[in-house]
């Protein structure tokens, strides 16, 4: 759990207090803290003068606006057809073994979360994953192991 502090106020001053600022504000919180806490969503509701249910309703609609604890690095493995055909399962297995977590879980030190996601637009270079915003493509179990190793040392 993180303390949201002044962040929501700073963000709503930057993006504005109108309803259309909701997505940019929620996205900025997720960029910084990887997921939305209840506290953060209540705070956003207060700043924008809308009900907390509206904020939660919007946030929970979007898969990238997580309302559950997520690690510092969120690994999203594409599971749509081409990635699935080109070895997505091997990639997942490598990551699972390396981090000792299953799909949907977060490491105990809150460094990594592993999830599956729908088409991320790299079918010509399948299999592909996103780690936070960055795409990694044409993966092999060896290649993905190296990538995760780099992230572990960050």
């Amino acid at each position: 759990m993180y303390q949201v502090g002044n962040l929501v106020k700073e963000l709503s001053d930057k993006h504005g207090h109108a309803r259309e600022s909701l997505m940019p504000i929620l996205q900025a919180i997720v960029q910084k803290h990887n997921y939305l806490t209840d506290e953060a969503m209540v705070e956003v509701a207060r700043e924008l003068d809308i009900s907390a249910a509206e904020v939660y309703g919007t946030a929970s609609f979007y898969t990238f606006l997580d309302t559950q604890v997520k690690g510092k690095y969120v690994i999203r493995v594409c599971k749509t057809i081409t990635c699935s055909m080109k070895g997505k399962s091997d990639i997942i297995q490598s990551i699972e073994e390396m981090l000792n977590i299953k799909v949907g879980e977060t490491t105990p030190d809150n460094q990594f979360s592993l999830i599956e996601t729908n088409c991320i637009g790299w079918c010509h270079k399948a299999p592909a994953i996103l780690i936070n915003d960055l795409p990694f493509t044409e993966l092999t179990p060896e290649k993905v192991t190296e990538i995760i190793k780099d992230y572990m040392q960050k």
């Binding site: 940019p24 929620l26 609609f61």
Partner: peptide, 24 residues
């Protein structure tokens, strides 16, 4: 403006809803 991982927001009116800060 950025989306947040919802295929349906490619549908034009869902996209508008999303820009307006609502569920897509």
């Amino acid at each position: 403006r950025l989306g947040s991982g919802a295929y349906i927001c490619g549908e034009e009116s869902a996209l508008f809803e999303s820009i307006e800060g609502k569920r897509g």
